[in-house]
Simulated assay, not measured.
Amino acid sequence: MSCLEGGIETLCITEAFGEFRSGKTQLAHTLCVSTQLPLHMHGGNGKVAYIDTEGTFRPERIVPIAERFGMDANAVLDNIIYARAYTYEHQYNLLLGLAAKMAEEPFRLLIVDSVIALFRVDFSGRGELAERQQKLAQMLSRLTKIAEEFNVAVYITNQVIADPGGGMFITDPKKPAGGHVLAHAATIRLMLRKGKGEQRVCKIFDAPNLPEGEAVFQITTGGLMDVKD
């Protein structure tokens, strides 16, 4: 997307948050393919690791995206290491195992979709919030370590929750889940929302090196495409 000025960065965490069907997972699928492009085509020329906590990854979606970029779909799928996580502990253990694999193979991207979902299930009561945030901080610390140790880009998706302090004059009073713990861990935060039809809007919510801005993109079978003015 144009507002990212070339893609997502290595050595840090990029978070995309938004409501259901706002384009977070579609962006993840597109990144699965574009990361494997050669460097001269603005790709990462490396493998992708995908940790799925909600069962949203679809291999069949990868095929038309690969074809759009002129790539062999089977080869692209072979370079995506996929794992389904069922509890927050399982999610953390998958990251530990993944680090060993990254030491041996050329990975360029780690996707966690969604980073918060299992924490919200496993720690449901208000009395468990402090423990949840502590465990979430450990998970995010591990993601940061992986990004820095193996020079990979980390892309995480996040859910939104109602913001009671948003006020009645805000048209969509929602904020990203995870509180300050997640806010401090993510270097770049993208807010995704629905536009007209299959159009979605990506806004730079927080980034130290990117100007504030928005990009309108279209969800297609070939992945996400910028909508030109």
Results as ranks from 00 to 15, higher is better:
1 M>W: 07
2 S>M: 12
2 S>K: 14
4 L>E: 06
8 I>A: 07
11 L>T: 15
11 L>E: 15
13 I>F: 02
14 T>V: 05
15 E>R: 05
19 E>C: 08
19 E>V: 08
21 R>K: 08
22 S>E: 04
22 S>K: 10
24 K>E: 01
32 C>M: 00
32 C>I: 03
33 V>S: 01
41 M>F: 06
41 M>H: 07
41 M>A: 10
50 Y>P: 04
51 I>W: 01
51 I>D: 10
51 I>H: 06
52 D>M: 06
53 T>Y: 04
55 G>F: 08
55 G>N: 05
57 F>V: 02
60 E>K: 12
63 V>C: 01
68 R>C: 04
69 F>V: 04
71 M>D: 00
72 D>F: 03
75 A>H: 09
76 V>R: 00
77 L>K: 12
78 D>R: 15
78 D>A: 15
78 D>G: 11
79 N>E: 06
82 Y>T: 12
83 A>R: 04
84 R>H: 13
84 R>C: 06
85 A>W: 02
87 T>E: 05
87 T>R: 06
94 L>F: 04
95 L>T: 10
98 L>V: 00
99 A>V: 05
100 A>H: 14
103 A>F: 08
106 P>C: 01
110 L>E: 07
112 V>R: 07
112 V>N: 04
115 V>R: 12
121 V>K: 09
122 D>M: 04
123 F>N: 10
126 R>Y: 03
129 L>H: 13
131 E>Y: 12
133 Q>C: 06
134 Q>C: 07
135 K>Q: 15
137 A>E: 03
137 A>M: 07
138 Q>K: 15
141 S>P: 05
141 S>N: 14
148 E>F: 01
150 F>I: 07
151 N>W: 03
151 N>C: 06
154 V>T: 03
156 I>W: 13
159 Q>Y: 03
161 I>R: 15
164 P>L: 09
164 P>H: 05
164 P>N: 07
166 G>A: 02
166 G>H: 00
167 G>C: 08
171 T>P: 14
171 T>M: 14
172 D>E: 14
174 K>M: 15
175 K>G: 08
177 A>Q: 00
177 A>T: 07
178 G>R: 01
180 H>V: 14
186 A>F: 11
186 A>S: 12
187 T>V: 10
192 L>Q: 05
198 E>K: 15
201 V>G: 08
203 K>F: 04
205 F>S: 11
206 D>W: 03
207 A>N: 03
208 P>C: 00
209 N>G: 06
215 A>S: 14
215 A>D: 11
218 Q>T: 11
219 I>C: 03
220 T>H: 02
220 T>P: 04
223 G>C: 02
224 L>R: 00
224 L>A: 10
224 L>G: 00
225 M>H: 13
225 M>W: 11
